[in-house]
Amino acid sequence: MAKKKVFQISNALTEGLEETVTAAHNYNGELRVEIIPLKKIELDPENPRDLILSFEDLHHGLDKEDKDYSRKSEEKSSLLSLANSIHEQGIINPIVVYKFGDKYRLVAGERRTLASILAKKTDIQAKILDKKPNDLKISLLQWMENVERKDLSLWERLKNLEKIISSFLKCDNEGIATVMPVELSRLLGCSLPHAMNYCAVLKADNQVKELIRSNKIKNLEKAALLSTIKSNELKISAIEACLNGATLKKLKSLSSQDKFKKKFAIKTMNPRTQGRQASLVNLGSTKKINVARIIVDSVLKNEKLLHLNQYFSDLNWTDYNAINHAFRQLLKTLEQIEA
């Protein structure tokens, strides 16, 4: 009897359909961008700031009597180049705000907002959230914003990441390193290898971390590689190479020595399993005459075999043919002795 037919939508397609619907539910409205008047934007008093320059300072001009005058004017001039580019082309990424009464409170994009005021704009592109996002969301949004910024150092990115993970896992600093790469890649929407690199660096020892903090190591892949080297000596030489500008490839080959022994061990434990059963021992071959010589010398040190010296006493150690011939003689004689 013929087999009963069963038709099933493939797992991959099922998964894809389910994920799409869930994502659409969870994130609807997330990418809405509108243009809002700059005058309606205010800072969130609960969020920490890096700058002390206020919106009023820019709307009305700096006050020379202000006790922070010099710092504020420094901050203002640091915004000038951004203001220029906004004047020319507008902002590339919209800022993020949430509704607060009839005003909007800033979640991300303080510098862009200030620079837009400076560029004499009246309004700005903004993503508008319905309510104040929770800590995890704020840190994620700041992460996404900052990923775009080139001037952000690896250390600053790591600090951001620690914030995200601690609000995600609801844990203290100790717990941060327990985050799994899979979780992280989902959280950030980055690739798994990228997340694995971040996880490795989060677990780095103080020496490596200090080098990242002082901006001596700027590259995530290199930092991740250095964080995973186990042997101390190797790590010291790898760090030195890295500081001297070694490429990632170079560092990889350096660090692979760490794994060399392991690899070798695995190979000898897995003898070939294909083909005919072996019935003889192949002693192999080498191009290095020295190696052959070491073998011969070691064999001839054996007291029982001293008399075999005859095959090698006047051997020409530069002639491969002669050496091969002597080895064959040696093997034959050894076989006879053992038989």
């Binding site: 397609l13 359909l17 799409t20 609807n28 409205g29 990418l31």
Partner: peptide, 24 residues
């Protein structure tokens, strides 16, 4: 056809990201 549904749902999802909540 089911694969086609998947493609269409992508467009719907993308659009729902861009629409305001009150105008989904």
């Amino acid at each position: 056809s089911i694969e086609g549904i998947y493609g269409m749902l992508q467009l719907w999802k993308q659009e729902s990201y861009y629409r305001a909540k009150e105008n989904q």
